[in-house]
Simulated scan of single mutants.
Amino acid sequence: MWLAVLLVFPLLVSGHMIEVSAGKKECFFEDLHVNDKMTVTYQVGGGGHLDIDFWLADPGNTALAKHIKQSQGTAAITAKKDGRYEYCFSNHMSTVIDKMVSFNVHGVIYVDDEDIVSPIEREIRTLSHGLASVKDEQEYIVVRERTHRNTAESSNDRVKWWSILQVLVLFAVVAWQVYYLKSFFEVKRAF
């Protein structure tokens, strides 16, 4: 029974983590048929100002979605024609810093409603959509946690080194004061 349901309503999900080099772009593609649905969600997890350019184009190279300097985003389309749909992440705005991008691609292969026999299959479809959005949210939280942890560790290192510098300066000032006061109280003899 479950195998039949999976064959009737395939939901394709894939998640990726890529590094987009400075001044470069990374492109991917999906082959879709009319009425197939595809959703791309992404988030920049590291590098620079945590922003990236994103666009999604149809087989005729017409832009269906375009995000400029965004740290996260979602693009959802329904295919109007058969062919290869391309989506790209561009780091052309940066000349030095690489960016880490986490993204998920969800695709739903269109199945005519006449092929859906029972209400239980509709419920499975609804649950499948719900699970996909929970997975997206969970991956978003993991990337945010990583970003916040890196920020906290960086702040911790700066506080540690600033404290060490203050201790060294304190000891230097104490040593100078002891030397200065000692020389102030020394008796100088003239021969």
Rank of each mutant, 00 (worst) to 15 (best):
83 G>F: 01
82 D>E: 15
91 N>R: 02
36 D>Y: 00
29 F>Q: 13
70 Q>C: 11
92 H>P: 08
27 C>T: 13
68 I>Y: 12
88 C>A: 04
80 K>A: 15
61 N>H: 13
37 K>Q: 13
58 D>T: 00
30 E>Y: 01
26 E>T: 13
32 L>E: 02
69 K>I: 01
84 R>C: 08
26 E>Y: 07
39 T>D: 09
80 K>Y: 04
43 Q>T: 08
53 D>A: 06
89 F>C: 06
46 G>Q: 07
22 A>Q: 03
51 D>I: 11
75 A>N: 06
50 L>S: 07
50 L>H: 08
48 G>A: 04
69 K>E: 15
60 G>I: 05
79 A>K: 00
65 A>P: 03
75 A>L: 07
47 G>N: 02
71 S>T: 10
92 H>Y: 14
37 K>F: 02
41 T>Q: 12
82 D>Y: 05
27 C>Y: 00
31 D>I: 10
25 K>L: 14
31 D>K: 11
53 D>H: 10
21 S>M: 11
70 Q>V: 04
47 G>Q: 05
79 A>E: 05
51 D>Y: 05
81 K>R: 11
58 D>W: 01
88 C>D: 04
75 A>E: 07
33 H>D: 15
85 Y>Q: 09
38 M>H: 01
67 H>V: 00
54 F>Y: 15
60 G>A: 15
60 G>C: 11
37 K>Y: 04
24 K>E: 14
91 N>E: 04
77 I>Y: 01
89 F>A: 07
45 G>L: 10
45 G>K: 04
47 G>T: 09
24 K>I: 10
60 G>Y: 11
86 E>D: 12
22 A>H: 01
60 G>S: 15
48 G>M: 07
63 A>C: 09
93 M>T: 07
30 E>A: 12
64 L>F: 06
84 R>E: 11
53 D>L: 06
66 K>F: 10
58 D>L: 02
65 A>I: 00
43 Q>I: 15
69 K>F: 08
64 L>R: 03
90 S>W: 01
25 K>S: 14
66 K>P: 07
37 K>P: 05
59 P>Y: 00
59 P>C: 02
50 L>W: 00
74 T>K: 14
29 F>D: 13
78 T>A: 05
30 E>T: 09
62 T>D: 12
91 N>G: 08
87 Y>N: 06
56 L>M: 12
26 E>R: 09
30 E>P: 06
91 N>W: 01
77 I>S: 02
43 Q>E: 14
25 K>V: 06
61 N>F: 10
82 D>K: 14
91 N>P: 09
50 L>E: 10
39 T>E: 15
31 D>A: 06
31 D>H: 12
89 F>D: 03
36 D>I: 00
30 E>C: 05
75 A>P: 05
21 S>I: 09
69 K>R: 14
57 A>R: 13
25 K>C: 08
66 K>I: 02
51 D>L: 13
24 K>L: 10
83 G>H: 01
